[in-house]
Nucleic acid binder design. Structure first.
Length: 424
RNA sequence: GGAGAUGUAUCGAAGUGGUCAUAACGAGCACGAUUGGAAAUCGUGUUGCCGUGAUGAGCGGCACGUGGGUUCAAAUCCCACCAUCUCCGCCA
């Protein structure tokens, strides 16, 4: 959520940002509502002031034995008027909030222009696309041939866009999760949390998934709960409504969760393999920082995510996301894309964003440097560190051998009881 | 799932319809006095949001788990919801 004061004081900046995002929002209408709200609020507050004054006199009058009939009549009328104006303020508040919750974040000046992911700007690469002296297979073909990935049984049991992992496949998925968690806790200084996989509506609003993107989420029947689309939601909302101690910042958390996405509107895309599932595993990095430190922390966060891919020896590149591909909540975003031979291109495996105070405002997460300071909003950041299913896909494809076997990357072998190779 | 209890500031806790909710009382914390220094003691201070000022001061409004209701007036009475605790049931 943006600060309504920004609309009052620097409307041009807001309009420029919305125009970069090609968002068509009735900003002037919003300002008119805001003006009406403030005028009504002033009026009703004056009346409440009067009500408070008189209310303090009433017990005195009663004690003196005065007749209060007339005062009660006047106060009854005043009270009714206050109620009606309070209702009006409430309605205006609700209208304003409804609009504010659908206005995206202001892109940082560094965000490149552009409309689609084609316009994202490559920042750097690690290693080179894997070369094969044989015809490489896609991970879904490898997985089926090795008997480690089974979408058919998953379709029987559940439906499309789910997988059973079996044998060494299941072990590999679990190994990757543990390797990521261990590396980020022991080497990068993140504190591990294991959050609920369901959250209520307020949490989804806090991080920006709701109200705008409800069709992307799975709602649990007969409850107000949603399956988490990412650990970002429960982990960021851990501190909702809190005032944090400035000495404790930055707070850095790493969390493994399964992630659940309805994938509405992506029918027909990435239908084979592990790339686009309704349920997938992810290790997520989340940071809470002081505003002046957030961009430096974003660079470190991207480096932490890159590090696990380097250790796995997977070729990747980092791209800076253009304004058209930026996403609703981010001010600046980097994607890390891993080389995927079956796609013959780089495929997103991590998304790292600085939300500045956009989520902090929604979730009301603030900090104080010293107890005497005024509380101000933290900046929140998060990034995949990294997606697990896509990692397994990338390992299968990049580490495949001519005989159809797959070599296990060195760093994962301790997590797989020394297994060096998955063979059919 | 059933029965009961509880929810007030950083913590404990008083307040059961009004005339001091920043809020009694106790503790913590900050500053000051006292001390050679400290402990003890004494004094002062110690919530957030909204509106209006300039992002200051001041002024006004709001907030007693959350949301409604009754009333001239609600922490206090009524309703719903949420959370915590105890006991029972069930369960991994």
């Amino acid at each position: 959520m943006l600060d309504i004061k920004l609309f009052r004081n620097d409307l041009d900046k807001v309009k420029a940002a919305l125009s970069r995002r090609k968002e068509n929002i009735d900003v002037d209408g919003l300002l008119a509502l805001d003006k009406e709200r403030r005028e009504t609020l002033f009026e009703v507050e004056q009346m409440k002031g009067r009500q408070n004054t008189v209310s303090k006199q009433i017990p005195v009058f009663k004690k003196e034995g005065k007749d209060t009939t007339e005062i009660f009549a006047e106060m009854k009328k005043l009270s009714d008027e206050i109620k009606s104006l309070d209702d009006k303020v409430r309605e205006l508040d609700a209208k304003i909030e409804q609009i504010m919750l659908t206005i995206p974040n202001i892109p940082n000046d560094e965000v490149p222009d552009g409309d689609t992911d084609e316009d994202n700007v490559e920042v750097r690469r690690f290693s080179e696309p894997t070369k094969f002296d044989f015809e490489p297979k896609a991970h879904w073909d490898l997985g089926e041939a090795l008997g480690i990935l089974d979408p058919v049984t998953a379709a029987k049991v559940t439906g499309a866009r789910f997988h059973f992992y079996k044998g060494a496949g299941a072990a590999l998925e679990r190994a990757v999760v543990n390797f990521y968690l261990d590396t980020h806790t022991a080497e990068h200084g993140y504190t591990e949390v294991f959050p609920p996989f369901m959250v209520h509506r307020n949490s989804m609003v806090g991080t920006g998934q709701l109200p705008k993107f409800e069709e992307d989420a799975f709602k649990v029947m007969n409850t107000d709960y949603f399956l988490v689309p990412t650990a970002e939601v429960p982990v960021t909302n851990m501190y909702r409504g809190d005032i944090l101690d400035g000495d404790k910042l930055p707070i850095k958390h790493v969390a493994y969760t399964a992630c659940f996405r309805a994938e509405a509107g992506s029918a027909g895309r990435d239908t084979r393999g592990l790339i686009r599932q309704h349920q997938f595993n992810k290790v997520e990095l989340v940071k809470f920082t002081k505003p002046e430190e957030s961009y430096a922390e974003l660079e470190k966060l991207v480096a932490d995510a890159e590090d696990v891919l380097k250790r796995l020896g997977l070729p990747y590149r980092v791209v800076k996301i253009c304004v058209g591909d930026l996403g609703f909540t981010a001010a600046l975003k980097y994607d890390i894309e891993v080389w995927m031979p079956s796609y013959n291109r780089y495929v997103e495996i991590s998304s790292c964003s600085n939300f500045e105070d956009f989520q902090a405002r929604r979730a009301n997460i603030r900090y104080k440097n010293t107890p005497k300071d005024k509380a101000q909003f933290v900046h929140t950041l998060n990034g995949s560190g990294v997606a697990v299913g896509r990692t397994v896909a990338a390992i299968l494809e990049n580490y495949q051998n001519a005989d159809g076997s797959v070599t296990i990357p060195d760093v994962l072998r301790p997590y797989m009881r020394g297994l060096e190779k998955i063979e059919g």
